[in-house]
Design a binder for these strands. Sequence first.
DNA 1: CTCTGTTTAGCGATAA
DNA 2: TTATCGCTAAACAGAG
Length: 429
Amino acid sequence: MTMLSNSQKLYGESANTAAGNSSGMSASTTNSYTINSMSGCLPMNSCSPQNFNSNMLSSSGSGVMGGMPMPGGGNCMTSGSMSYSSNMNSCMAYNGTLGVSPMASVARNDLTADDASPNSAAALQRARVDKTYRRNYTHAKPPYSYISLITMAIQNSPSKMLTLSEIYQFIMDLFPFYRQNQQRWQNSIRHSLSFNDCFIKVPRTPDKPGKGSFWTLHPESGNMFENGCYLRRQKRFKDEKKEAMRQTHKSVSPHHHHHSHHDNGSSSSEKKSVEKLQNLVEKSSNPDLSMLGLGKDTDPMTSLLQHASGGSELCAQQHHQQQHHLSGLQQEDLAAMMGRCHPHFGLGGGGDHHYNHHHHHHHGIKSEYTGPASHPFSITRLLPAESKPDIKMYDMGMAAAAAAQYAPYNPAEYYQNSIYHTSAGTAAL
DNA sequence: CTCTGTTTAGCGATAA
DNA sequence: TTATCGCTAAACAGAG
């Protein structure tokens, strides 16, 4: 059991500063630590929930399986096999053994102690008292790609549009891990926003002065995490038009010593995004765009669950490169949230682009969905009725609630266990 | 100046 | 194996 593959690396945030050496990050700079990777340790190359669950999460048992999450014990956090200590070395230790991870213990009420003594009261007690456990847990790198984090943030906002800084804030509020090394991950976030066609930049209107633009999701991006994997999409969403434009630009550029500004005003990049929008508008003759204007029509929660909820096959934790410490979280909620992606965007028209790979894939994508928000942590119920954008989730309640939605680390208990309470609670910083 | 965005590059890791 | 995907670094430009 405990053999970890050394294939996966986590970039220890604490360690190297963003600076780094010129040539990318060499192996040395990234003090990476390995973590167990599914694929690594296990033969299976797929992320079947079953396997995952049994092998990875095992003890925690929280299974999110098909649909209903952990009724009983509530462990929302399923196995977090990874630890979180900011510096990883420590974690690895148990990391291989999923069940025993500190996080797991913290998360679950019944947890087994990290010391293998299963439900010992003492262990439990200790877990509750010892802040380091909590801290470690809380600070673990969430098993979500930046793309999924951004998506979560946007979808969670009432208007379905956020500024860059709001996205940052959302992530930091929810995941303590990202309160560190901001420069590094924020650069990545910016890169993700610009680089991925699934994110669209919406200019500010005069009535809303402020710093950057708003970012929203491409109406046709569909449910990018349909497979339940938040670390790696099966296929990257590409906007054909935009892509075409890119090509064109490229082939034309040679001569133009530095873009001859025969364009009036806006930079080429600006233009691009504008066009992007325009295209959007054209394409979606209507409904979809409502979101651009302000997606209120979308009831976040409802839509949310509609899709996914059950569906998360949780293969999420699955492997995936670096980071990815899988902390097993409750995929469910997340799935629910992500899943909803654009539920109603029926995309009927031309939508599905790349997202249908049904092809083979064991991914059983979508398990049967059993009905709306029936489970405890479904966003439908947890989501603050109206998330006020500005309120930030600083106040506890919010933080907990928010966290709950994504179930990353389970909110409810999490909260109960005073994780946020004690330290972060007030700290919330 | 800092913050936003865009873009290129290279790396590690997975999927096909 | 190759094709992709995601992460990080970094150069760069523009806005505030």
